[in-house]
Amino acid sequence: MSARLKFTNDLENLRSNIYKMSKLLSLKFEELVIVLEENNRVLAQELIYSDVDINKIEIDINDQAVSLITQQSPVASDLRLIISCIKIAEDLERIGDNISNIAEVSRKTQILNKQILLRLTTMIRLAKLMLDDAMVAMKKDDLSLVNEIIERDQDIDQIFVQVTLSDIYEETDAFVTGQIQLTAKYLERIGDHIENIGEHIYFTLTGKRYK
């Protein structure tokens, strides 16, 4: 195999690890909706346990990136892809942590208010769609989709404001109120991480920072 071919294959492996990590998170988002809607505490516990799988892929991605840098002295778009994969993996790992945090909250609390529950699960669904689309954009080098994903973070932010500044007053239990606020905040953070991922993909594709 030629040196460049091996390098190209290694870069593909790096990318596919990002897709794999992202796919796992996407499934976790779906399960998180079930956790909230059905107050499924067993599933919540599983979500927390399986965070290690996500962490492990992040470490693999970092190791792969380091050896590619040492062996290949990458430049230009190759280097941008490697740097971006390291950063995307970090954001994905943080998304995993936030999912675990939400699952942790759900193990102790049941949100009964239908309106609030709908808002929170909508945030989760929006995040899942954003993340899935980010991976499509990365696979297809689709810059306009990247731009759109970054914009879409605003939708999540709006629901966050809606929940924390208005809906929350309908909840009378002080403890539950706090837990809802935390959940909304974790989801808002998840939105920011996906927005970051969009920006990393933008950088990979253009060599410029997203402004």
Binding site: A3, R4, F7, P74, V75, A76, S77, D78, L79, R80, G207, K208
Partner: peptide
């Protein structure tokens, strides 16, 4: 030239493609 070359041929050369 090494971070974000403007010409595709430069990119292909510096990256070894």
């Amino acid at each position: 030239i090494f971070e974000n070359p403007h010409d595709k041929r430069t990119e292909d050369y510096v990256t070894g493609r």
